[in-house]
Amino acid sequence: MSLILASINYWVTIILMIGGLYIVVAHGNMVKKLVGLSIFQTSVYLLFLSPGKILGGTAPIISEKFEVYSNPLPHVLILTAIVVGVATIALGMALVVRINEAYGTIEDDEVHEMEQD
């Protein structure tokens, strides 16, 4: 139990990662796939952010009152990664709308069937 609690951030990361990837693979609905993809990407944000936090540390604004600071780098990186993630999901959704217009369905297997003939 203590093993899990000591590194709870990593366990949550792993669960989200596997869960997200599973949704992408297992679901046939294209919107649900994108939801899974989004969860998968979110797990990575946690992976980056949690090692940057130092217990008792404050925001890295230099002042005489504080000696311990958290690492600001991961926040900057993840801000960028969130933007990339938003762009990916937006483009994915736009494609799903176009697929729906072209095929009349967003189910993977039905689209696949229509492509065969």
Binding site: M30, K33, L37, F48, T88, L95, A102, Y103
Partner: peptide
Amino acid sequence: RRGLTAAYQYLIMGTIGATFIVIGIGL
């Protein structure tokens, strides 16, 4: 119109690939 599904498929697999790369870089 198959270009649309091809792009969607590429998006899903490409994003998984990119996310794997970020995980590697993060570690």
